[in-house]
Simulated scan of single mutants.
Amino acid sequence: MVTHYILSAPSVYSEEFLRLSLIWLDLIAAGYCFVGNCHMRLPLVLDMLPRRPQRVLKLINSELSLVFGEILIWGGSTSFIASSRMRPPMTQIPIGWLQSVLMIYGVMIIVAETIRTLQALDMLPADPDAPTYEARNPTTFTNLLVAPCIVLAFGAGIMMLWQSDWMAGNVRNALELTSTIVLFMTFVVFLIIGSPIAIGLAFAGVLTLGLQIDLDIMMPTVGETMFNGLDSFGFLALPFFILAGNIMNATGLARRLIDFAMLIDGRIPGSLWQTNVLANMLFVTLSGSGIASATAVGGIINLIARKKGYNMAMTSAVNAASAPSGMLISPSGALIVYSLITGGVE
Rank of each mutant, 00 (worst) to 15 (best):
R306L: 09
A313V: 14
D165G: 11
T140P: 02
F80Y: 15
E16S: 01
D231W: 13
R267D: 14
M185S: 15
L44Y: 12
L272E: 05
R41Y: 07
V2R: 11
N302I: 11
V188G: 03
T91E: 12
F235Y: 15
L27W: 09
G155K: 05
T178D: 04
V111L: 14
V12M: 10
I268F: 05
I301R: 01
L102A: 03
L335R: 00
R19M: 13
L263C: 10
S77I: 12
F80L: 15
S322H: 05
C33N: 09
I213P: 06
I95N: 09
S289P: 02
E15K: 10
C149A: 15
A112R: 02
S62Q: 13
G75L: 08
I213M: 13
I258H: 07
C33G: 08
T342C: 10
L303M: 10
L183P: 00
L25D: 01
V67F: 10
G288T: 06
L238S: 07
I150W: 02
V45E: 01
T178W: 02
V297E: 04
L25I: 13
E346W: 08
M218R: 13
R256I: 05
L207M: 12
R55M: 12
V67C: 11
I93P: 02
Y105S: 03
L102R: 01
I197H: 07
C149L: 15
N319P: 01
Q54C: 11
L27Q: 07
F240S: 04
L18N: 05
P125G: 05
G343Y: 05
F241T: 04
V318E: 01
D127S: 10
S100I: 12
G309W: 03
L7R: 13
G75W: 06
I304W: 05
M159K: 14
G96N: 00
I181R: 04
Q119H: 04
M108D: 08
G200C: 04
A279W: 06
I158A: 09
D259C: 07
N280Q: 02
A296T: 02
L25T: 14
Q212T: 14
Q119T: 11
M48R: 15
V182W: 03
I341A: 13
A250Q: 11
I150L: 12
P89W: 00
